[in-house]
Write a protein that binds this DNA or RNA. Structure first.
Lengths: 204, 204, 204, 204
DNA sequence: CATGAATGAGCGTTCATTCAT
DNA sequence: CATGAATGAACGCTCATTCAT
């Protein structure tokens, strides 16, 4: 009814938030529906009013996280006589938004990097699709850059997954406490890697 | 000893091999003790004679993989007036051995990257420890390099995890079929990233 | 009353009709209140305004079917010097009306023969009562017949249930598709059984 | 092992017996696996060591009952110049064995007549198959009899189900307490029905 | 040492019923 | 009267672990 105190979407959101927290803490398999409903403060049956199954909530959690990530990534626009600084700044902007989002939401990081794996092949389809899309997008961007002479020639798809992996590496290490990390540091080190690799320039 | 037809260590190894195979195929949670004993050809009770629990075998599998990985990584030795080519070649050697091992053992890759996560905090202690050790080692190497002027100044620990992550990114994408990968490509792209990052040299 | 657009009895009837359909299709246990309200086009809560429980509707469905069956069965009236043809014709009339009703309403047959069973003792009280009443009535009729010399002496109650069972047997086999059946055939075979049994008359 | 105190078959039998009792008391749907294991005195998991599912035990119970029933029914052998008494005696033998078995095992009767129905179409396949087989067999016997002039011409299949139904009617009424029944009475009334129907001979 | 039958806590899911609106 | 979101006991089933042989 119009006068119900809690709307359907709100309840869904409430359960989703509880699920995100529980999955982040325990992972998909160790988390039980019991944990989610306890965290939500709802009854067992109510859960199934809003989600068809445990996997359905998990998928919803993943999709939600994916969406928020993809929102942070903007295409890099290049002027005709291209300006290195402008390009670098746009890439830095992507890194900055991603870092800000991730570092402020450790739960999502844990779900995304630690928990989504290990499901049966069919169940992790969402995850694989996400990384496929992301990899394709980064790869296409790299190829544009190569064509324009901004990016050095390379195997774009492999390099794309290496770059994505380097971000994952930093965030994952941070999420399990191996490394302290703040937005500025993450952005700076990522940009350094992108711009210069690790080694010093050879003298010549 | 004392005339037993199969030594204790051999039986352990037999079970370990079966477990590695099973965990690689199904992941920790979807794999059952039933699968492992079927693959081993031993009885249920026998399994518990050699391992205290399902988690114990999994830990042993992880430790085994970790050991084989760490064997591939050699410290970089630097001559006094240091020779860039010598350094790069030693790093390339590490990358090459790692790539060869990983690409020839997709099972270990799956266990390592996809299945080790999602365990309870205490259970994943091995995994965390491994990445911690690996991160520390890479970080220390970077710091040595910085001191010698080989490596550009950076936050060594964060950069270490970024580098490790970039390798994981390539291997993971390969292991789930998002990207074709061979040893030469992986080594080349990894080295390029290390040496030059992604962007072209600025014109100066 | 008082201007309500739909009377209480009508609503009850509407739900009852829906329930009959649903129970016929799915049986008592596999049918859910959800099915009944969907078929009725009413809300969940409304259902409980007209029936106290799922069992209550089922009982009502049974009572309704019982009533329609009992309506078809007329007492056999016997003239003083009794006329065999008249008696047989009246029995045949009962059989005919029953057959016509049953064969035109397979849903009721399913509910009656297949679904009513398996309930707890207390729940099936209606069913037992019905068969008790029916058995008593047939038995009393047989005893009248015996007294008049129309019916051969026998254990009337046992024979009554055997006769009822023979009709149930035909209808049940038909309802699950084991046998094709039309009104004429059913009546004829039932009457033959009543009049002559199965075997040929001995020669003498 | 050879020395286990309880053989696999015995355990199966123990569970089967418990299940038969529970299904007889409560019916398929109201009976729970919990009831069966309580009656068996075994643990939950043990049940699933011997039967794959609740339905599997139920099917096994049905098959067991069917087998014991079919054992009681012998084909009627007819001599060339046929002897009415010999035929009747053989039919009576079948009736007697059936009656003895059924009346000594009320649980089976309840399962068979009251509980087997109401399952989903596919689940009751066993039951339908059984009645189909039984009907076919009786029908074929009737047709043999008709050819030989022993049985009066009739729709054999319909009559077969009517005869089976008459036995079911007596037994069902007995099993729920509507009628007292002993072996002699049941056999006598069944034979009377078969031999002479219900009505007295017309005067002619 | 080796075995495998037995265990039971725990899982994800269903559904008849209630009650605040 | 009518609604439908909320409830929670109960269900069938799994599986890591134990222990008598």
């Amino acid at each position: 009814m119009a006068g119900s105190s809690v709307s359907r979407a709100d309840r869904q959101g409430q359960i989703l938030a509880a699920a995100r927290k529980v999955f982040a803490q325990k992972g998909y398999y160790r988390a039980g529906v019991a944990d989610i409903i306890k965290e939500s403060g709802i009854a067992r049956g109510t859960f199934y009013l809003y989600f068809n199954s445990k996997r359905a909530v998990f998928d919803a959690v993943l999709v939600d996280i994916f969406g928020r990530i993809l929102e942070q990534i903007h295409s890099v626009r290049v002027t005709d006589p291209w300006d290195e600084n402008a390009v670098v700044e746009q890439v830095r902007g992507n890194a900055q938004r991603l870092a800000a989002m991730m570092l402020s939401d450790p739960g999502s990081v844990r779900v995304l990097f630690a928990e989504a794996a290990g499901l049966d092949e069919e169940a992790s389809v969402n995850l694989v699709e996400f990384y496929d899309r992301l990899g394709q997008w980064v790869s296409a961007s790299l190829e544009d850059g190569i064509r324009l002479g901004i990016v050095r020639p390379c195997n774009a798809l492999v390099t794309a997954h290496a770059l994505i992996g380097s971000l994952r590496g930093m965030l994952w290490a941070w999420s399990i406490g191996l490394v302290p990390l703040d937005e500025a540091t993450m952005v700076q080190e990522a940009m350094n890697l992108v711009q210069a690799g690790v080694l010093c320039r050879p003298a010549t």
